[in-house]
Every structure is written in C-alpha cells, then in structure tokens.
C-alpha cells in the first residue's frame, strides 16, 4: 500500500509534466516557472530549517563516546571516536559524512542454537551491505550532480571534464555510458529492495521513505532515457539552463518532453527536500552527539537557559536528622 501510494505519486508527477508539455504546451511553466520556484523553495526551505534548528541551543555536552577518553597521559586516547578537540571533531564528522563511519560498524543479529543446551543465544554477523549501498548511492549521486554542472557553466571547468572522462572510462555504447548512472540505479534499487525484503525495515518504512526512492529512480531513469534512448538536443537544454542562470529565461527550440519530465522531477525533488527526511543532509552536521567534543569534564559547557531549582539544602538535612547524626558521632554545623 505504502509502496503503491508512493509509486503513484511519482507517476502522477511524471505524467503531469509529460502531458503538460506534450499536449498542453506548457513549456514555459515546466521549463521556467517551476524550476525557479523549486530552487527558491529549496534554498529558502533549507535555510529556514537550519535556522529552525539553530534557534534551539545545545544545552549539554552529549557526545557519544565511541572510543577511549583523553585522560591519563600514558593511555592512548581515540581522537576521532571520542574527540577531545576540534581537530578530532572535524575528523569524526569528516569520516561520518564522507565515509559513513557509523554504518561501517553495522552488524546483523540473529539467534544461534547453543550446541550444549536447548537454549539460543544472539549472534552478530558483519553486515556492510547498507554501508556499501548507501555509500555508492550518495557518492554516485554527488558525482552525477557535479557532472551536470556542464549544463550550468561556460566555459566548462577542466575538473568537470575530467570527472566526465573518468565516468565514461569504459567505452560502452554511444553516447558513452556513464558508470555512475549504473551505480546510482543499482544502489537505489538495492535500497528499495532492502526496504521491501528486510522485514524489520519494511515494518518501519513510511510512505515518506518510498517517495524519495521512487523520485530518484524516476529522475535517473528519465535521465538515462534521454541520454541513451530518446535523444534530447543537449545544446537546447544548455541554452535553457544558461538562460535560467543568467536570469533571462528563454525557451529553446523544441526539446523532447522527456527532458521536461526529468526537469520537473528534479524540481519536485528540490521542492520536497526541505520538508522531508532528506534534510538529513543538513541535519547530519547538527547532530550534537557527533559534532561535540568529549572533554566536558575539562572545559565547562554553558547552558543558556540554565535555571535554579529547588534543592534540599544541608541545613534542612541537618535539621531533620540532627539527633541521629549526633548519635552516630557525626560533626554538625549547628549544635
């Protein structure tokens, strides 16, 4: 049900763009108005969400310490798993963001029959599939995104040309097949399949987990379609994109509707982004358990809303137990 709902949503989006352009000739809407709107919604929404988070303070130092603390000099501390300074924090965040350090730890638990009795015990097997799938997906997505800058820039920086060269390293077909396209499709498919086939993950999945998957799948698919199958006039696309970035929007000569479908799906993703779990992109930087140092015993962390509370003072305590304390020979402040 959840899957179907998400699938239909994405199909409707695609069909809307296709019909809009192919039959209603709304190129202006799908090529100019919506992309501009999407971009504005994206950056405004994203920034607003960041500010929304930033409006709340981090009152306490709640680093998760996954390695030895910095204590006695002769004990080797773990700079990255339990950072004692900004160097460690940067390292930790870097490993987390670029290499998914935490997912690398992932294991899979299951029950093992004991050889000696009738009882069972849990067993833990290394499981790097999510790490690998996630890493491949995010890296190829980033790669593709950067590669797309060839439509946005002129002259095209040599770095982007080099990226493209690597991506089309293997001469497969013409135009040459991009490896990242394959990796993206494979990894998104993997992420989808694990959501369907791992019972636990299926059980926790919401519609909002399937929508981005289908949306990205549809974006990749429409992109691949127009590159390899139904060709699109690339120069026309560049003309449109460059006109948008120079704030003098103009529609090019007829460009295939597949392009508009692709463009609209990308716009949809951008619009959806700030209001969805996709904000983990910004949020990962904001996670206090990872972006703080573990040295809160050495340096005092300040809580801006720290307020005084009702305590049971020693005076009250002594008043209450004076006789007993006297009996036990304990020193008293007031005799």
């Amino acid at each position: 049900m959840k899957i179907l709902f998400a699938l239909i949503t994405v199909l409707i989006l695609s069909l809307a763009a296709f019909t809009g352009v192919e039959y209603l000739h709304m190129e202006y809407v799908f090529g100019i108005v919506i992309p501009y709107a999407a971009f504005i919604i994206f950056i405004a929404g994203f920034t607003a969400k960041i500010f929304y988070w930033a409006k709340s303070p981090v009152p306490f130092n709640i680093t998760t310490t996954a390695g030895q603390q910095k204590s006695l000099k002769w004990i080797k501390s773990d700079h990255f798993e339990n950072p004692s300074g900004s160097f460690g924090v940067i390292g930790r965040m870097f490993m987390e963001i670029f290499f998914f350090r935490s997912l690398f730890r992932n294991t899979k638990a299951g029950l093992v029959k004991s050889s000696k009795s009738e009882s069972f015990k849990p067993g833990y097997a290394s499981d790097k599939s999510l790490w690998l799938g996630g890493l491949m997906f995010h890296w190829s997505f980033l790669y593709i995104l950067i590669r797309h800058l060839r439509f946005f820039l002129y002259p095209i920086p040599s770095a982007i040309v080099t990226l493209e060269k690597f991506d089309s390293m293997f001469q497969i077909g013409l135009p040459i097949f991009y490896l990242t396209d394959a990796i993206l499709l494979l990894s998104v498919t993997f992420l989808f399949l694990r959501r369907v086939f791992i019972p636990q993950v299926k059980y926790i999945s919401l519609i909002a987990d399937f929508i981005p998957l289908f949306l990205i799948l549809a974006i990749a698919f429409s992109g691949i379609m127009m590159r390899y199958v139904s060709r699109v006039d690339v120069i026309g696309v560049k003309e449109l994109v460059m006109s948008l970035t120079s704030f003098s929007p103009a529609l090019p000569e007829k460009v295939s509707s597949v392009f508009y479908v692709h463009f609209f799906l990308v716009s949809s993703l951008f619009m959806y982004f700030p209001f969805s779990k996709l904000m983990h992109m910004g949020g990962v930087f904001f996670s206090p358990t990872r972006n703080m140092t573990g040295d809160s015993r050495r340096i005092r962390h300040v809580n801006p809303w720290n307020y005084s509370v009702k305590v049971h003072s020693y005076e009250e305590y002594e008043d209450e137990f004076r006789e007993a304390m006297k009996g036990a020979g304990l020193p008293l402040d007031k005799e």
């Binding site: 303070p57 981090v58 709640i62 996630g134 636990q200 993950v201 779990k277 904001f286 996670s287």
Partner: peptide, 16 residues
C-alpha cells in the same frame, strides 16, 4: 530548549 530533540525528530531516514 534542546536542539538535539528537534534534529533527532527531523532527520531519521529509517534506514534500520
């Protein structure tokens, strides 16, 4: 009061 709460409410992707 707690940024952690806000962020943790928002960014889970339910990867499992």
């Amino acid at each position: 009061r707690f940024r952690s709460l806000k962020v943790f409410m928002d960014i889970c992707v339910r990867c499992g």
